[in-house]
Amino acid sequence: MSESEAGHRLIPHTADLRIEAWAPTRERCLAEAVAALVDSFLERPLPCASTAVETSLPADSDENVLVGVLEEVIFQGEVSGMVPVATEVSADRSGVRVRFQMVDLAAATPCGAVPKAVSLHRLRFRRDSHGWRCAVTIDV
């Protein structure tokens, strides 16, 4: 799998949203999952970032890291009114470090329901012979 083979898609799901993402590395797959989440409720092109937010998350399991990153996006939207237009993820000793390039939600054009929570039902995040893949259901 080459770097150009990273991506994501949204899958219709009864009363919810299902996201799939893939990439050569775990960290890039996490960033693709964030992009999919944002694409589910904001139109592209997204406005330019106005600030950055960094956070560290423990990595007790790959699935928990995925949930933590996506929950941070939802939290930032609800609390600060900001959403990421770009995401960088790097591994560190205790887990992952995430840097979100943020924009005010009011500056973006909505196109779908704002996500409310990450569901643990049918959550997947693992490495396969082509790289890393994840799938997650989002409550909207």
Rank of each mutant, 00 (worst) to 15 (best):
Ile19Glu: 01
Pro84Phe: 08
Ser40Thr: 03
Trp22Ile: 02
Val65Trp: 00
Leu42Asp: 05
Arg18Ile: 08
Trp132Phe: 15
Ala52Lys: 13
Ala21Asp: 09
Asp62Gln: 11
Ala15Gly: 01
Ala23Phe: 05
Ala117Thr: 06
Trp22Asn: 02
Ser90His: 08
Cys29His: 07
Val85Tyr: 03
Cys48Gln: 15
Leu42Trp: 06
Cys29Tyr: 10
Ala86Ile: 04
Glu88Lys: 10
Gly77Phe: 06
Gly131Asp: 03
Gly77Leu: 10
Val67Asn: 05
Leu42Ile: 13
Arg133Ala: 07
Asp92Ala: 01
Val89Ile: 12
Ser129Lys: 07
Cys134Val: 12
Val69Ala: 06
Asp128Met: 02
Ile74Asp: 02
Asn64Thr: 14
Ala31Leu: 04
Glu71Ile: 06
Asp128Thr: 11
Val53Leu: 11
Leu37Lys: 07
Glu43Gly: 00
Arg122Val: 10
Asn64Tyr: 13
Gly112Ala: 05
Ile74Trp: 04
Val73Asp: 02
Glu63Met: 09
Arg122Gln: 12
Arg124Ile: 15
Ala107Pro: 07
Ala49Asn: 06
Thr109Met: 06
Phe100Asp: 09
Gly81Glu: 10
Ala33Asp: 04
Ala59Arg: 10
Ala113Tyr: 10
Arg124Pro: 04
Ala31Cys: 08
Ala107Phe: 10
Ala21Trp: 08
Leu30Gln: 09
His130Val: 08
Val98Glu: 02
Ser129Glu: 14
Val89Gly: 06
Ala21Phe: 08
Gln76His: 14
Val83Gln: 04
Pro45Cys: 11
Gly68Asn: 00
Val118Trp: 00
Arg99Ser: 06
Glu54Cys: 05
Leu37Arg: 04
Asp104Ser: 13
Thr87Glu: 02
Thr55Pro: 02
Ser94Ile: 11
Thr25Cys: 04
Gly112Trp: 06
Leu46Trp: 13
Val53Trp: 11
Cys29Leu: 07
Arg26Glu: 07
Arg127Ile: 00
Thr87Gly: 08
Gly95Tyr: 08
Arg122Asp: 15
Asn64Ile: 13
Asp16Ile: 15
Arg126Val: 14
Arg18Gly: 05
Val67His: 05
Glu27Thr: 15
Ser50Leu: 03
Ala23Trp: 01
Val114Lys: 11
Arg126Glu: 15
Ser119Leu: 01
Leu123Pro: 01
